[in-house]
Every structure is written in C-alpha cells, then in structure tokens.
C-alpha cells in the first residue's frame, strides 16, 4: 500500500511539473500561431460553446441574465472555478456580452 502511494504521488508530482513547464513555456506561442485555415476546422462558435460548456455543471444562464460588467466578473470566476480554457472562455463571454 505504501509503495503504491509513493509511486502514485511521484507520478502526480511529475505530471504537475510537466504541466507547469508546458504551461509556462507554451503560453505565448501555441494559440497565436495557429493560422486561420487550421482554426476553421475545429472552430466552434461562442454560442455553441456556451450551450455545451455552461451546461456541464448547472443549467445554462441566458445572455440576458447579466449586464456586460457582471458578465466580465463571472467570466473570470467561471474560467478559474470551472477550469475552462482561455480561448473557450473568451469566445463564450464575447457571445454572451454581444447577445444580452
């Protein structure tokens, strides 16, 4: 049992370190470099992401539920609390602010 624990914790720590390194080193390049044509392939609209992402934990709030100022507070809160990627979060909240 102790051995398994140790191995498990080491794996987690290693994963943590790798994630840290990747996160720190890749923050500039990965998303900005993607060319238009590449992005179009997987691109999901803000509205679509809103329907899919915001329903994962609770029912989806409609764009009219808040004004732009409140949406931007919620944007930061949900991005962190729900661990949503920055690009998805940007698209979703751009949509919410444009449609309220």
């Amino acid at each position: 049992m102790k051995k398994i624990t140790k191995i498990f914790m080491r794996l987690i720590m290693m994963a943590g370190i790798i994630v840290t390194v990747v996160a720190c080193s890749s923050s500039k390049e990965i998303y900005t470099d993607i060319t238009e044509s590449k992005e179009v392939k997987f691109e999901r609209s803000g509205a679509q992401l809103w329907g899919e992402t915001c329903s994962r934990c609770h029912l989806v709030p409609s764009p009219a539920a808040y004004n732009d100022t409140d949406w931007s507070t919620i944007e930061l809160h949900m991005r962190i609390r729900a661990n949503i990627s920055e690009s998805d979060s940007n698209k979703i909240f751009e949509f919410l602010k444009s449609a309220n």
């Binding site: 840290t20 996160a23 890749s26 923050s27 998303y31 930061l76 962190i80 920055e86």
Partner: peptide, 8 residues
C-alpha cells in the same frame, strides 16, 4: 486567485 498565464 491570480491568472499567471493562459494555462495557469
């Protein structure tokens, strides 16, 4: 909470 970068 403080956003360090896109992924952290």
């Amino acid at each position: 909470m403080y956003v360090l970068n896109k992924h952290m």
